[in-house]
C-alpha cells in the first residue's frame, strides 16, 4: 500500500519523466513519444518503488532485472535511468546522436542499467525468460520485469517465450502488456486482433491480472500479489498512448512522430 506522500512523490516523478521524454524526442527530432508517455507510470512505479536496484552498481548480481521488450520506447527508460543516477542527465541531450550510448533502441553493452538488447519485437521477452532460467539455475531470488507492447505480442516469438516460461515454471517473471490498443498502423484490433487477451496468456500457463496502467496503487498492489504466484505472471496494463499530453492521448500518429517546436511548447506547458 502506498501512503499519500509516496503517492505524491511517484506522481511528481512520472511528470518529470514525461517532460524528459518529450524533450528528448523533440531535441533528437526522432524517437517514440506516444508509447513512452503511456508507459511512464509503470516505469516510475518499478524504478522508484518496486525494484531492488543500485544505480552505483548496475551489474549487482541480485538486482531485479528490467527488460524493455517494446524496445522503441527508450525515452521512458533513459529518462528514469538518468534520474536514478545510472548516467549523467546531460547524456540525454545526445539521444539518437552518433557516438552516444543512448541508441534509438536499448544497447545493453554500453548503457548502464540496460539489462538486454531489444528493438526487434519479441526478442526481449525471450531474453528475459532466458535470464530468469539462469537465475533459477543460480538459485537467485530476484525478479524479471518485462514490458511488452500490445502490438509486439502479435509476434509469434512472444508466444514461444510464453510456452517456455510455463515449461520451466519461471515464477520470477512478471510481465506487462502495455495495452493501449494503438500501434504504428492504427487501432490494434483492426491491424491484428488479439482480444480476448487474458485467456490467451492463461491458456499458456501464466497468471493474469488486468489493471489500470496509470494507477500507482493498482500497479504496485498487483506486482506485490504477482510475487506470491507460483507461475509466470502477465499484467495487462490498460494505458493511454501519449498519456499526459492531451493532444497526443489516444492518437496513433504520435507513435513515432517527434514533436516539432509548436507541439513541444504546448506539451511542456501541460507537463509543468
Amino acid at each position: 500500500m502506498l501512503n499519500k506522500e509516496e503517492h505524491e512523490i511517484l506522481k511528481a516523478k512520472a511528470k518529470d519523466i514525461r517532460r524528459e521524454i518529450v524533450t528528448m524526442v523533440h531535441r533528437a527530432n526522432s524517437g517514440h513519444v506516444g508509447g513512452s508517455l503511456g508507459a511512464a507510470d509503470i516505469i516510475t512505479a518499478l524504478y522508484y518503488h518496486i525494484m531492488q536496484h543500485d544505480p552505483k552498481n548496475p551489474e549487482w548480481e541480485d538486482r531485479d532485472r528490467f527488460i524493455l521488450s517494446k524496445g522503441h520506447c527508450t525515452p521512458v527508460i533513459y529518462a528514469a535511468l538518468a534520474d536514478c543516477g545510472y548516467f549523467p542527465k546531460e547524456d540525454l541531450l545526445e539521444f539518437r546522436r552518433p557516438g552516444s550510448h543512448l541508441q534509438g533502441h536499448p544497447y545493453q553493452p554500453k548503457t548502464p542499467g540496460i539489462d538486454a538488447c531489444t528493438g526487434t519485437l519479441g526478442i526481449g521477452i525471450s531474453t528475459g525468460v532466458g535470464m530468469a532460467l539462469g537465475a533459477k539455475l543460480k538459485k537467485q531470488e530476484h525478479y524479471h520485469y518485462i514490458l511488452c507492447g500490445d502490438g509486439e505480442i502479435q509476434e509469434g516469438q512472444v508466444w514461444e517465450a510464453a510456452a517456455f516460461a510455463n515449461k520451466y515454471k519461471l515464477d520470477n517473471v512478471i510481465g506487462f502488456v502495455d495495452r493501449n490498443y494503438l500501434q504504428t498502423d492504427g487501432y490494434s484490433e483492426k491491424v491484428m486482433p488479439m482480444d480476448p487477451l487474458a485467456p490467451k496468456w492463461e491458456s499458456f500457463g501464466w497468471k493474469v491480472f488486468e489493471i489500470d496502467g496509470h494507477n500507482f496503487e493498482e500497479i504496485i498492489d498487483t506486482i506485490e500479489k504477482a510475487k506470491n504466484e507460483k507461475q509466470p505472471v502477465m499484467i495487462i496494463a490498460n494505458t493511454t498512448k501519449g498519456k499526459g499530453v492531451s493532444f497526443m492521448e489516444g492518437e496513433a500518429e504520435w507513435h513515432g512522430k517527434p514533436p516539432a517546436k509548436e507541439h513541444f511548447d504546448k506539451a511542456m506547458l501541460e507537463l509543468t
Binding site: 539489462d115 538486454a116 525471450s126 531474453t127 525468460v129 532466458g130 535470464m131 532460467l133 516469438q157
Partner: peptide, 11 residues
Amino acid sequence: SAAAGLALEGF
C-alpha cells in the same frame, strides 16, 4: 534469444 539471456547471466 533465451540463450542470450543465459549468456547475460554468465552461462
